[in-house]
Amino acid sequence: MPVNVETVIFFLLAAMAIGAAVGLLLSRNAVHSALFLVLNFAVVSVFFLFLAAPFIAMVQVTVYAGAIMVLFLFVIMLLGAELLRGGASGRWHSALAVVLAAGFVGVLGYVAFFSGIAPEALPNVDAGFGGPQLLGMDLFQTYLLPFELTSLLLLVAMIGAVVLTRDARTRSAAGPGARP
């Protein structure tokens, strides 16, 4: 395993990401969980930068860490659901989950480090790889149809969200029975 500055930085950041994820997992308070998740996203976006994906990194920060997590926080506070208490689920259930998780990581780790794949340095890439210009070319040429369909999906999701969260009173007023 080569030890150099880059590797050290990677491990430090990886530890932060894992730590944030564990924090998400263990926090009693949902607001804390959300903040841990933001931290995790931020770290991952740094990884994106390392991996020559500057555009995706920016999107990660603005959309994920920004918009989506703000939405989460908003809903948590709207519902007043920061602290949830209730009966414990079955012990064997949690234990099984942890065992399985360990197994899962073990399997993947085996694949990563003991299946004969040599950990090599990354090849070079062209300048501008993963930048907005080249990515935009891809999006609007090769992937134009999926891109447009995605916009449709967003529209449907938006309508769905509006319809689902309408007040019961408003809903009945707009229903067929209340039509003038």
């Binding site: 880059e6 990884f47 989950a97 942890v98 998780a101 993947l108 780790g109 990354l122």
Partner: peptide, 30 residues
């Protein structure tokens, strides 16, 4: 460039597993 792809994959696997554990262990829907 010196960090191999395998490291990222391993990190990703750990994060994914932590996510799975979150789904399986926590009761709060959020």
């Amino acid at each position: 460039q010196s960090v191999p792809t395998v490291y990222y994959v391993a990190l990703s696997a750990i994060l994914f597993t932590l996510g799975v554990l979150g789904v399986l262990l926590r009761r709060n829907a959020l």
